[in-house]
């Protein structure tokens, strides 16, 4: 049976702490921005611009988002004693290896984007979080409010087109468009022409639920991977569109035990098709990687 009181406790923290922090700082909790933006400094991405690559910190902070359930009570108690802002980078910090991996992924996504959007920029330390967590946890009204502020935020900075790097951010913008008429055009980087994208390896695809079943990218992703030279092994029983399985990520904030069990179950079924899996989402990577060798599409290709 669902643990009602634990759900209520988490939701209260999200509303009282995370939403408040989002309203004030455009971030769900304090983050080490130097770490999150390092990749862009290294790649020499222009600052700002009419077209921006919008990471919403998903690749950089995925390890933190995964341990959100464990993190929340601490964030909550620090917020209660007014300590949250001074927390800075100490609490929320991915490891060096994780930062390095995220950097490779984002540099490749940037390169793919730049091929069809020369001059694409990045907001660096100013970049706001997408608000995905609010929608996924049912804070629909708060999500809509935040979306209005976000649109304003981008418009003030002269942003005319947004290129997203992950499914959760893309879906947030799609939901803003649907719910509040978010008017800035956006595209996911996978929808851009894959100019010169090549890679190798044999994988079973673990579809992001959002990409395959909400943004209708199931076929596009298969085409893209094949065109890039990757060998894809599909099995209708495991990777079919209607029977695909979640990585467990969305349950993380509410129940990490079930979330982990789901990841393990998914990894086992993927293994029955191929020893190595390919993902397109930083949260899928975080959840599945303890149980099966996984690569992100953006780290097995060279643009």
């Amino acid at each position: 049976m669902v643990d009602e009181s634990s759900i209520k406790g988490t939701l209260k923290l999200i509303r009282d702490v995370v939403y408040k922090n989002l309203t004030n700082e455009y971030l769900p909790f304090p983050m080490d921005k130097a770490l999150a933006t390092k990749w862009a400094y290294e790649a020499g991405v222009p600052k700002g611009g009419r077209v921006i690559l919008y990471t919403s910190y998903m690749y950089q902070m995925a390890p933190v988002f995964k341990s959100f359930e464990k993190l929340l009570p601490t964030v909550g108690s620090l917020a209660r004693i007014g300590f949250l802002a001074s927390l800075g980078s100490r609490l929320v910090k991915p490891s060096d290896a994780e930062v390095k991996r995220a950097s490779t992924v984002l540099k490749n996504i940037y390169a793919i984007t730049r091929a069809s959007r020369p001059g694409v920029g990045y907001l660096y330390e100013e970049e706001p979080y997408s608000g995905a967590l609010l929608y996924e946890l049912g804070f629909i009204d708060e999500f809509k409010e935040y979306g209005k502020r976000l649109e304003e935020f981008f418009k003030i900075r002269g942003v005319e087109e947004i290129i997203t790097a992950d499914p959760h951010t893309t879906f947030s913008l799609a939901n803003y468009k649907r719910l509040i008429g978010f008017s800035i055009p956006f595209k996911n980087y996978l929808e851009l022409p894959p100019i010169g994208v090549t890679g190798k390896g044999r994988f079973v695809i673990h579809d992001s639920c959002i990409y395959s079943r909400f943004l209708n990218m199931y076929d596009l992703i298969r085409q893209l991977t094949k065109d890039a030279g990757l060998e894809i092994v599909d099995d209708e029983k495991v990777t079919g569109r209607g029977i695909g399985f979640c990585c467990g990520g969305p349950l993380g904030p509410l129940n990490s035990k079930i979330s982990d069990e789901m990841a393990k179950a998914r990894a086992n079924s993927l293994k029955s098709v191929n020893p190595e899996a390919l993902v397109f989402c930083p949260l899928c990577y975080e959840n599945l990687s303890p149980y099966i060798p996984v690569k992100d599409f953006a780290e097995v290709i060279s643009p």
């Binding site: 669902v2 909400f214 695909g244 129940n255 789901m262």
Partner: peptide, 14 residues
């Protein structure tokens, strides 16, 4: 409350 254990995999709609 059971709705909060939904992961929005979207298979149901399919």
């Amino acid at each position: 409350w059971p709705s909060f254990y939904c992961t929005h995999s979207g298979g149901c709609r399919e």
